[in-house]
Amino acid sequence: MMLNILIDDKKIEAEEGKNLLQACLDNGIYIPNLCHVKDMAHPQASCRLCFVEIEGEKKPVPSCSVTVREGMRVKTDTPSVRRLQRSAFHLLLSRHFIECKVCPANRKCELQKIAKFLKVGLKSNYPLLLPKAVLETGKQETDESHPIFNYYPNRCVLCGLCIHVCRTTHGIALLTFAKRGIDTVISFYGEEDVSRLPGDKCLACVNICPVSAITLKSLS
């Protein structure tokens, strides 16, 4: 069944059971997002960028975790929505090593897109929270432990899409979140045996990464 919802001043139709963020995106209404991917069973709701205000709710909510309801009235551009989005975005940037010129993601990078949309620059409001060595040398860290891929922890925004896509492609995920809190990284731990890997035939994680934090070794 199709439901009618009002996004800002635009009336859209959305299929029952769909999540609000997807419904907006399907109708050409952009809401910043990093950790959302179509058809994820349980939204991760971790990037905290997709906030909207829904009539009847006191505070902004992440739209990826809301199921559409008939007659729902949604605002995507209120001051409190923008404030949270900009704040989250600046926080992410404070952990992100900016090197656009040489970055493979340049021009297709989600961070660039979001910065433009939110009308903010790529310089964080917060002091950079990068490892000392990175700040001193101006060179970012690289995890080269994997036989095929390189991983750049100072680029990664921990959206988790690589893990998700690996799991949906192969039934199991050959990469994972490791450690905790601010130290969280993506890890390929134990995957040094090339014969077990799909190898460069499957580049799902490389392709889905919004910031090119995983790249093919042979290309870098």
């Binding site: 971790s46 704040s87 917060y126």
Partner: peptide, 14 residues
């Protein structure tokens, strides 16, 4: 912090 979401992971550090 479990490190999942942006505000808690990075915000508490600041």
């Amino acid at each position: 912090s479990c490190g999942k979401c942006t505000f808690c992971r990075i915000g508490t550090c600041h």
